[in-house]
Design a protein around this nucleic acid. Sequence first.
DNA 1: ACAGCTGTATACTGTAGGCATACAGTATAC
DNA 2: GTATACTGTATGCCTACAGTATACAGCTGT
Lengths: 128, 128
Amino acid sequence: MAGRIRIDLDSPVPATRQIADALRVELVEGRLKPGDELPSVRRAAVDLGLHFNTVADAYRLLAAEGWIDLKHGRSARVAERKAPPASRDAVVGYRQRLRALVSQMRADGISSRRIADELEALAKGVLS
Amino acid sequence: MAGRIRIDLDSPVPATRQIADALRVELVEGRLKPGDELPSVRRAAVDLGLHFNTVADAYRLLAAEGWIDLKHGRSARVAERKAPPASRDAVVGYRQRLRALVSQMRADGISSRRIADELEALAKGVLS
DNA sequence: ACAGCTGTATACTGTAGGCATACAGTATAC
DNA sequence: GTATACTGTATGCCTACAGTATACAGCTGT
């Protein structure tokens, strides 16, 4: 499944979203390309230690976002996808979430230096 | 309450956490200083359009993190707080969450340039 | 002491996450 | 063609948790 995904059952963020998030990273970063087949829901489920319906929900979520094509009897495939035009106010929502995350890191005692480094590394990665 | 907070009831992230997250930003960034009084749970609740018990839960969450002092009959106050030493592996968890968030931004059609700018601005803000 | 604020505790209701199980479409071998 | 073994789908159930209502209890001014 293109890199091991760790699911934290204790996390407040549901497993379904954790799976979708992890796969979305692979998709956005191009490690999963259009036409690629995803592992079956049952295969992925045993790998992750979850029920296959949970994986199926994650797949449906990604399908709703246009990332993958689902058809009944055959494997899920990565779809071609043109990015939707950015909604202007979406940015402010994300900015809030980013700031909240950074504040949480600071609250956890991670140094400013370290946080800034992580952010800059991310920014570089995005542009490349 | 130190800046208007918008609560999105449709969001999958619960209102309690949204409140705590927003307040934690204010606390980390120093706009709420030790000794300051927070608005009462009922006051804040009407401002946010929620039940005061929801706000109380958020306060308890922050109290558990050491940010504020709660005592029965009197207003919640911002506490002095020494940051705990960072747990080393906490960073990798946050890195995952950051990457997931960035991927979601890209998936929403926000340009790489814009995302990088947001991240760099954040990094600068953290260091200052 | 009393009135009016404060946060606390308990019970209730609705909803959503995850799982079990039965179903239905597709592809491949024969 | 049809059997078979794979795919994803649909329904129902159980549990946990978010949000609310309502009653309680501790401070602090007058």
